[in-house]
Nucleic acid binder design. Structure first.
Length: 571
RNA sequence: GGGCGCGUGGCCUAGCUAGGAUAUGGCGACAGCCUCCUAAGCUGUAUAUCGAGGGUUCGAAUCCCUCCGCGUCCGCCA
């Protein structure tokens, strides 16, 4: 049984065109296209033959189409203007697609296991306070890409790189150890801990003594003081627990946490410095080692990237290089989900890894632009943030109101579950539906939109399909020839294209087409739902349609899973 | 100053990697559809000099050049 139901049709179309070209002694690249609506499923444009044949593209299309024999795979092959259009034989497509999905069920869309081991690093936010909406784009993108790559058959582990070495984390620890928080303390650890960080930062800025104390801890820490490391790590873990709690609500989990300090303490950072210091592209300035960016082709105002301070201690980028070497030692591919502010740093890390004789192509950074508020950039310092927890609570709350209004008859527990699915789903979907490079301006009314191009729209179609199936006890033998209504065929075509889309998204490492597909599929299901009554149909038609509903539900469920959304049975 | 990304109807957005047939869809607006499997749904109407200008091409939203706007980076911070 084929993984991709469309494969046969496409390769057959190519074959037919190739044969026709050969019979006319022509040889060109085949840019098979997908034509606009109502003009078939594949199209072969004849413009490029025009010069060679000294004829109009329309005439060529006509001539060429006469060389193409009738074929079972296509119900129609015809010249139309400068194109030859291929119309897939719907009966055959229905047969292949529905049988394939019935056979694979929740596995449909998944590709055979590869032996590619991927480390996918995402989120990696400094653990000094709760995640805000701006940062949330990272885990949502990362988790979705991970899901897509797994369905492509790869072995993916997700990883959070914990920055436990920076001054920020020492500041937090100083705060926890020296300050007493009055009043009510939030229960969630990230919200509880951020106060110490903010207050300590304030005191550090106002009081030179505090700054001195913190600097001393930082200095000792960098000399590999195990005891300080343990104290800092403990506080990091507390904040992390809060972050992961929030992310768990969005069904985002980490397989592993990589601690930055590890690379200092195990000596791998020293090795990196040792290996780079004799390189022709590096040099010293006041005994601080730097990489000469001009020599590696990066220009800017400042061309030196420092790898150590003049006291020999390491810098963030150096540790990041050590970290990536570690990844390459254990994985075939290291994917980093990064904000666009990290572009240069990522490039430098890649370059350095290359200079050290490793395959820098195995590091693949994926960048996204920031989420800002209508009044400007999100800033914890200026108190201009929407935390992820606020957003989730608000979204689930709004979803709850909607369920109460729409489905008051449902059990309370069920309504609660639906609200959670819809509320959290809407957030994920809203972030994922636009391409990562676009800036997003966060607007509540858009984030909380439950209509149109949104998660609930897709979830609703799944619920409708589930509802139909729930109402039938038995599905008898079905005759797929009875699937022939245009709305049914359109739906089947969408179902058939799912595996190819998974692969495409994996190859390009992008998720927004998956959201677009989810919407398209749900929309086509809704049109089918409108045009083709299932339970009221004649028994044989009903059985065939039940089969279509069954496979549609599998695919919708698989798509929702790919996007990390819950597929509700009712809503 | 230099690098990278983005710019598509009032708002949001697809298409750009591999140039092709009337530029995708959503929100909002307006007009309709619940004696019929869930109306978080469906149908219809209006709204686009694809940032601007040039170039390549039979053909440009898509490729090239210039310019403009927005974001982002160019720390012995992380």
């Amino acid at each position: 049984m084929t993984v991709n139901p469309l494969e046969m049709f496409k390769s057959r179309a190519i074959e037919l065109v190739n044969n026709a070209l050969a019979s006319l002694d022509l040889n060109v690249e085949l840019p098979l296209e997908i034509p606009p609506e109502n003009m078939g499923d594949y199209a072969f444009p004849c413009f490029m033959l025009s010069k060679e044949m000294k004829k109009s593209p329309a005439d060529i299309a006509k001539q060429l189409s006469q060389e193409i024999p009738e074929d079972l795979t296509f119900s129609r092959i015809e010249a139309r203007g400068p194109y030859i259009n291929f119309y897939i034989n719907p009966e055959m497509l229905v047969q292949i697609t529905i049988e394939s999905i019935m056979d694979k069920r929740e596995e449909y869309g998944m590709w055979p296991q590869t032996d590619v081991k991927i480390n996918l690093e995402h989120t990696s936010a400094n653990p000094n306070g709760p995640l805000h909406v701006g940062r949330a784009r990272n885990p949502i993108l990362g988790d979705t890409i991970a899901r897509i790559l797994r369905k492509c058959g790869h072995d993916v582990i997700t990883e959070f790189y914990v920055d436990d070495m920076g001054k920020q984390q020492v500041t937090l620890t100083w705060g926890v150890e020296n300050l007493t928080r009055e009043g009510e303390i939030p229960e969630k650890m990230d919200h509880a801990m951020v106060w110490y960080y903010q207050e300590a930062t304030k005191q550090m800025e106002e009081n030179p003594d505090v700054l001195e104390q913190i600097n001393q801890i930082v200095a000792k820490y960098e000399e590999k003081d195990e005891e300080i490391s343990a104290r800092v790590k403990e506080n990091c873990k507390k904040v992390l627990s809060g972050m992961t709690t929030s992310l768990r609500r969005l069904d985002i989990h980490f397989d592993n946490f990589a601690w930055e300090s590890k690379y200092i303490f195990n000596g791998s950072v020293d090795t990196v410095v040792e290996d780079l210091k004799n390189h022709e592209f590096t040099d010293y300035e006041d005994s601080a080692l730097y990489l000469d960016l001009e020599k590696v082709g990066i220009t800017g105002q400042e061309n030196k990237l420092y790898l150590t301070r003049s006291d020999g201690s390491s810098l963030y980028t150096t540790r990041d290089i050590a970290y990536h070497l570690d990844k390459l030692a254990n994985y075939d591919l290291a994917i980093d989900i990064l904000g666009e502010d990290h572009k240069l740093k990522a490039k430098v890390v890649q370059l350095a890894v290359g200079l050290l004789g490793h395959e820098k192509e195995k590091i693949e950074p994926l960048f996204y632009s920031f989420v800002s508020l209508p009044e400007g950039k999100m800033s914890t310092r200026k108190g201009r943030v929407v935390t992820l927890d606020d957003l989730i609570d608000e979204s689930v709350g709004r979803a709850r109101e909607e369920v109460e209004k729409r489905r008051p008859e449902l059990a309370q527990e069920l309504r609660r579950g639906i609200a959670e699915a819809v509320g959290t789903g809407a957030i994920r979907y809203n972030i994922i539906r636009v391409q990562a490079e676009k800036q997003i301006v966060f607007k509540w009314e858009e984030a909380l939109s439950f209509e149109g191009n949104s998660a609930p729209f897709v979830q609703y179609s799944h619920a409708r399909a589930s509802s139909i199936l729930r109402k039938t006890s038995v599905m008898g033998e079905y005759e797929l020839k009875l699937i022939k209504h245009p709305s049914e065929i359109q739906l089947v075509k969408a179902l058939a294209s799912f595996p190819a889309l998974i692969k495409e998204c994996g190859k390009n490492m992008e998720c927004h087409p998956m959201a677009g597909y989810a919407f398209e599929l749900a929309s086509l299901f809704n049109q089918f739902y409108r045009d083709c009554p299932v339970l009221q149909a004649e028994e044989d038609v009903m059985n065939a349609r039940l089969a279509l509903v069954t496979v549609s539900r599998y695919v919708m469920s698989n798509v929702l899973d790919t996007l990390g959304l819950i597929a509700p049975e009712e809503m």
